[in-house]
Write a protein that binds this DNA or RNA. Sequence first.
DNA 1: AAACCCTTTGTGACAAAGTCACATACAGCA
DNA 2: TGCTGTATGTGACTTTGTCACAAAGGGTTT
Lengths: 228, 228
Amino acid sequence: MISDRHQIEALTQQFPFLQQADSAFRDSFFSHVNPVSVSVGSAICDQGMHCQYLALVRSGVARVYKLGENGREITLYRIATGESCILTVSCIVSGSPFPAFAVCEEAIEALVISPSVVRQWTDEFPVWRRYLFGLISDRLDDVMSVIEEIAFRRVDRRLAAYLLQRARSEDGERIKMTHQAIASDLGTSREVVSRILKDFEHQGLISVSRGQLQLSDRDGLSNKTLEN
Amino acid sequence: MISDRHQIEALTQQFPFLQQADSAFRDSFFSHVNPVSVSVGSAICDQGMHCQYLALVRSGVARVYKLGENGREITLYRIATGESCILTVSCIVSGSPFPAFAVCEEAIEALVISPSVVRQWTDEFPVWRRYLFGLISDRLDDVMSVIEEIAFRRVDRRLAAYLLQRARSEDGERIKMTHQAIASDLGTSREVVSRILKDFEHQGLISVSRGQLQLSDRDGLSNKTLEN
DNA sequence: AAACCCTTTGTGACAAAGTCACATACAGCA
DNA sequence: TGCTGTATGTGACTTTGTCACAAAGGGTTT
């Protein structure tokens, strides 16, 4: 439960659906919601678990991923400010176990809501329903593109696209990740990533050093994205 | 709109959520729903389209699949009696375009509902909401397992599992499909399927002939599912 | 500076999977 | 019987994944 005026003000900024809500929902929201912190690296949800609560992220990042028998991973999507996890929603409304893993990647401040409250809000408040359906639809799109990628696109093209996108969300030039971390996002193995990165380096598109890499030819990488 | 008593009776059998519904919803349901037939092979929805309506399947089968640049396909799930398509639902409630293709595989009799009615029911009737959330959750599980399969499992194992499952849903022994059709379900290429089927035949697990194949050693196939 | 960690990256050989360009084989029908 | 379109077979080659290591890097401790 949250009562501090400034907190309420700030939360209303972060979650636009609160601005469109009537006071009945807003009151219920702030009285049933609890703040939590999650530290980097800690497991948020494991495959097969039943979710204890729904979390709305205020700050930080969580990564939701599948883990294969062979130990390989693939990232399904990330959850950032203002978002929540549709898999959790699906678990809660239907009672099925969580079909993936979630881990905290950057320290998270979130609000947690118990399943029973989620169900109650879903029955009572259209604004909340719209928020949930919006989440579901967005995540579904993410997951669908993951399928398209791994089923049909070549790894080198995916990697090129990944580097461009990732650079944008880091400082624009430099990406601080190990090859293993990149491989885990793309659902392939470390060796494959290393090989392709080395190719890119030989072609003058990037430069690689331990734990990070620099983009030097964005246009070249863009081309890699399309044809070979 | 449907008024025939027998029709109403039959539909209530097919869609369990109607049995739990109050008369307000039942009345609204039967007055807003329209029957349609879809013939084998016709396209139901194409990627990028905006859905015209939500369809509840009374009989027949639809296949929902992704199509890659290279022409390969992968089946996401099939929709059978009593079911509907979550992607359509997601399109309708959030207004985003349909992220896949859907085609009629066995002649379909269905009920169609317009988006505005879907939204209205979602706001008014808990029973309908539960039905929708149930669908979403089921399909999401399907899609998640597809990811797990293509990202991590070897094709021969997946094929073995596929054959066993498929035989169960056909006559138990024989599967009438072309190699190309199987490849499209699994998201691989025809040549790969042909090769592995030939291996299986050499090992005495199946026998292959044009357009169909017979399982002869179920246990052997089961083993293939696990280790190599 | 040297020795010692642990983590990250490199490598070569091989297996599995996907691609391409064909060659055959089969089934139904003219 | 031969024709035709679909279905399957095949070999060569590329890409991707796997395995078992070897070789740095970077930080910490002697």
